[in-house]
Simulated assay, not measured.
Amino acid sequence: MINGTITKVLGFDPYYETDAAERNISKITGIVRYVVEYTNGATEELVTTLRPGENFGWSIKVMQAAQAWLNAGGVIPEWVQPTPEEIRAFMPTLTARQFRHGLLNTNTLPSEVDAIIAEIEHEFEREAARIDWEHANEFERLHPLVVAWGSRLGYTPEVVDDLWEYFRTI
């Protein structure tokens, strides 16, 4: 258990099943953002997920603080469907091995990636892409090289998303 006190609830991030009109925090699913002050005086912002029937130990204190916040006028926002770009930003990274073998499995040779890099107009960006291609340990879905690869081969972002999920299995 955390050896500290919740000094402030910063807000609540709903899940898709969150009922924003519910006033009993023990019936609400979502993430509470809050500040803890430890016994040594240090403070830290933390988050805890609350889910009905699954709150034990420290999360009981978080639930109590969140209920006090809600009772004092705190507002639980409506859940908003994330945009495709927001979803892409949180897609898991691929190891360099997964990405390179995935490309190979979709008939994209390393020389084609080299050609994509060579087409980058700005020298600094081109050299940064070359360094990443040759030395990166992992790749993010929205990395400029990944975006350029998909665009150059005529893939829609949705097709690249599907390929990304496939590459994760390699």
Rank of each mutant, 00 (worst) to 15 (best):
residue 1 M to Y: 07
residue 5 T to V: 12
residue 5 T to I: 09
residue 5 T to K: 14
residue 6 I to F: 05
residue 7 T to W: 00
residue 12 F to P: 04
residue 12 F to N: 04
residue 13 D to F: 08
residue 13 D to P: 06
residue 14 P to V: 01
residue 18 T to H: 00
residue 24 N to H: 15
residue 24 N to R: 13
residue 24 N to I: 10
residue 27 K to F: 08
residue 28 I to Q: 02
residue 31 I to C: 10
residue 32 V to Q: 07
residue 36 V to H: 00
residue 36 V to F: 05
residue 36 V to Y: 02
residue 37 E to G: 00
residue 39 T to R: 15
residue 40 N to K: 09
residue 41 G to D: 08
residue 48 T to Q: 14
residue 50 L to F: 03
residue 52 P to V: 11
residue 52 P to E: 10
residue 55 N to W: 08
residue 56 F to S: 15
residue 60 I to E: 13
residue 61 K to D: 13
residue 63 M to W: 04
residue 64 Q to H: 09
residue 66 A to H: 02
residue 69 W to F: 04
residue 70 L to V: 06
residue 72 A to I: 01
residue 75 V to N: 10
residue 77 P to K: 05
residue 79 W to E: 09
residue 81 Q to V: 09
residue 82 P to A: 14
residue 83 T to E: 04
residue 85 E to W: 07
residue 87 I to F: 03
residue 90 F to N: 14
residue 91 M to K: 10
residue 93 T to K: 11
residue 94 L to P: 02
residue 95 T to F: 08
residue 96 A to G: 11
residue 96 A to E: 07
residue 96 A to K: 04
residue 101 H to D: 12
residue 102 G to Y: 08
residue 102 G to V: 08
residue 102 G to I: 03
residue 105 N to Q: 15
residue 106 T to E: 14
residue 107 N to P: 08
residue 109 L to V: 03
residue 110 P to Q: 11
residue 110 P to I: 02
residue 111 S to G: 13
residue 126 R to M: 08
residue 126 R to K: 10
residue 129 A to F: 02
residue 134 E to H: 11
residue 137 N to E: 13
residue 139 F to K: 02
residue 139 F to D: 00
residue 141 R to N: 08
residue 142 L to T: 14
residue 145 L to N: 06
residue 145 L to C: 01
residue 146 V to F: 09
residue 147 V to R: 11
residue 154 G to Y: 05
residue 154 G to S: 06
residue 155 Y to G: 03
residue 158 E to T: 03
residue 160 V to C: 14
residue 163 L to D: 07
residue 163 L to S: 05
residue 164 W to P: 01
residue 165 E to W: 00
residue 167 F to W: 15
residue 170 I to Y: 12
